[in-house]
Design a protein around this nucleic acid. Structure first.
Lengths: 270, 270
DNA sequence: ATAATAGTGTCTATCAGACATTATCTG
DNA sequence: CAGATAATGTCTGATAGACACTATTAT
């Protein structure tokens, strides 16, 4: 009664004898843009890992790693994030898959990019560890990407210009980075950051995504500060409050806001 | 003067001796949702391929194939699309990467999904060919996905319900399909279609994407019809024209519109 | 001539942007 | 009390949604 193929095999029989063959397969990795606000909400931080091997030896790279046979890409990203930072249950979303054949000179590596947003920046393995990680100040404007850590004296910057591309008969502008500093990010990780920021800013329009950078309970001045950091521009207080009004509920407690110096109502995401 | 690693190797030396090792690697494929309008603009069509092998033998599947070592995923998708349909230079965009370890029972396959939008639906290899392909009528509403081809007597339908998910502390609704027809789509291809349609509809808001389904020169009633097909609801004529006004230029010719029966001004995308 | 469809005018509700004002808190 | 900041009020212009009307064309 079971369906058989042209060789008379049932599905179970087919799978039993199936040989995946020896075609060249790419390695698949995940790479992540992990952002968190600075403690005083005066800017954003991004997590980078220092490379100890060729290629891009001594360069800083986005955290990431290989996708294991028994896990999804999402699970791989969540695992790597937890290994690096201890963070779990933070916002984590797929951004784009990068697949230029020569993006890694060692071998063919296809990388699925993720972005993660955390309300805190936990301490990471630093110093002269084999795996050195650090949080960098992250500044992203219309024409500049600046990533620096003044403690360890590293500054990486790219100028951003807009180039027009065509897809079918639809044209659109796209950011093109050009290195301005002596040090650079490893691989195509600038592009991963740029794609992530574009997607992030677009999604702020129709999601509650900035809430994932706020504490469980937050004041509105602080939530507004997070929105402003992610969007890269100031907002009007009154308009902002109208915008988020139906997504929040008062907790009926007061606390000093992080960015201000006064008591402010606490709220929670509905 | 060159930088050496802990073994004293330069980058060139390192790459020379580098052994990618024998870790398990996934196969990477691309799968595509290819949409085009019906000739009379009364609906959408989607391209499907009939499977001749286990698993999902005799099921219909999205077109796709393996990513070759020397090409990007985009190039793989463009190549497969051209092979199936002869189409090139159509709108083609990455949607999402699907990576459940068991999504293909034969082996680990990670699939990068693309969507393609064409103004025409070229004839495809049909009949009793080894590789049977066909265009299906495509209907997508809030609670139903219906894919059918009355010529060959195939109808595939899924009911769509909304389930709430959590990502970090952000909650959002997501469509969950449940099969209603006897026949089903192969693999997780329903999910690829759903993700693609969500992204497609969202991008219509801020791109010229529906123009890629129109002819080079088009009438406004026809362009509006395409917008309505993709969005799944009617638009007001006057509002629609205001909306597209600054993106089009008159060609100063008239032609009968496809959906109407009268002469109408021809336009072109700026 | 008539019916259908192309094309335009305009009213309204909503909303983002922009200031202005009042209330409250800290030092 | 003074200065700063939290919180609210309100004006304006742009825009989406809705409907009505005129012009043109196929039969």
């Amino acid at each position: 009664m079971e369906i058989t193929d042209r060789n008379g095999l049932t599905e179970a029989q087919f799978l039993e004898q199936y040989d995946p063959g020896d075609y060249p397969r790419p390695s698949v990795t995940v790479d992540m843009m992990v952002l968190s606000p600075k403690k005083d909400y005066s800017g954003l931080k991004i997590l980078l890992i220092k490379r100890r091997e060729h290629p891009y030896i001594n360069c800083w790279a986005l955290p990431g790693g290989f996708v294991r046979p028994e896990e999804t890409c999402y699970e791989a990203a969540a695992r790597e994030l937890k290994e690096e930072t201890g963070l779990k249950n933070v916002f984590l979303e797929q951004v784009y898959t990068f697949s230029k054949p020569d993006r890694d000179p060692r071998m063919r590596v296809i990388s699925v990019a993720y972005m993660a947003l955390s309300s805190v920046a936990p301490p990471v393995k630093g110093g002269d560890d084999a795996l050195e990680a650090a949080w960098f100040d992250f500044e992203f404007t219309d024409n500049m990407l600046l990533i620096h850590n003044d403690d360890i004296g590293i500054s990486i910057s790219y100028q951003l210009t807009t180039k027009r591309f065509k897809n079918g008969n639809v044209k659109y502008g796209n950011m093109v980075p050009s290195l301005k500093s002596k040090t650079q990010l490893a691989f195509d990780h600038v592009e991963i950051i740029l794609e992530s920021m574009i997607k992030l800013r677009r999604e702020i329009e129709y999601t509650d995504l900035p809430f994932s950078m706020a504490n469980e309970e937050f004041t509105l001045p602080d939530l507004q500060a997070i929105y402003e950091l992610l969007l890269g521009h100031k907002l009007y207080k009154a308009n902002f409050r109208i915008m988020v009004a139906d997504r929040i509920e008062a907790v009926d407690k007061k606390e000093k806001s992080i960015i201000g110096r006064r008591m402010s109502e606490l709220y929670r995401l509905k």
